[in-house]
Design a protein around this nucleic acid. Structure first.
Lengths: 122, 122
DNA sequence: CGGCATCCCATAGGATACTG
DNA sequence: CAGTATCCTATGGGATGCCG
């Protein structure tokens, strides 16, 4: 049984781009949280990540793999099947990502308000 | 009495660039931690931040100000004097930055080891 | 299915020099 | 002192199309 992913995180209405906290590159944080519930395949990752292109997703996964956050496993068989899973090191980032999410939930609108006011003032 | 800053944070031997956690732009996290101990002037910030150029420091401070993390105050008087201080919103990032630092202290060498191994394998 | 090859562009950020 | 002004480049990331 796989843990469902928080839908808000990928909601274009609340783009993570506005959150001034990033883990790795643009997609790494989301990827790691996608993998929290267990291994995922390449195309499974593309679904919640909607707008990510294969090239960029590959690059991000390779980077995560290189730094020991993610383990890539190509399963044998007639059909091609590749799995990505978190390593313990990758899992060590989960509390941080949860904290970042919590920060965003309680403070992001303050940021937005301040930005709006600053932009209106000039 | 101003709280001394952690020297390791700015040590080129442990460049924060390797830490896959960023708050805002390249310098924002360091700036915020520089301001933790109280208001600082422009040129005071340049000292721990050693390699930052004035242009980039200005840009980062403007961005932090725009988003309500930092308050800029130009004090009156014959000599020019500008102070930067954290707002409550800016302070709300401090626990996050502390967590990031803690992560780096306990896991950064794992990352480095994994990266080294991955680079040697290819 | 799980990518890679190619092209392209915007932006971040650094170097250097100058100023009110 | 606290910035601006210019210029320059690296790279992150997107678009598109092809492949075993």
């Amino acid at each position: 049984m796989r843990k469902p992913l928080d839908p808000d995180m990928f909601d274009p209405v609340c783009p993570s781009e506005l959150v001034p906290i990033r883990v790795g590159d643009k997609w790494a944080g989301l990827i790691i949280q996608c993998l929290e519930g267990g291994p995922r395949r390449f195309s499974e990752l593309r679904i919640p990540l909607r707008t990510v292109t294969p090239k960029v997703l590959t690059a991000s996964l390779r980077s995560l793999e290189r730094d020991g956050f993610v383990l890539r496993t190509a399963l044998p068989g007639p059909v091609r099947h590749v799995e990505y899973r978190l390593t313990p090191l990758g899992r060590s980032l989960l509390p941080l990502l949860a904290t970042a999410r919590a920060w965003a939930e309680t403070h992001l609108d303050e940021l937005l308000t301040a930005r709006e006011a600053a932009d209106r003032a000039r």
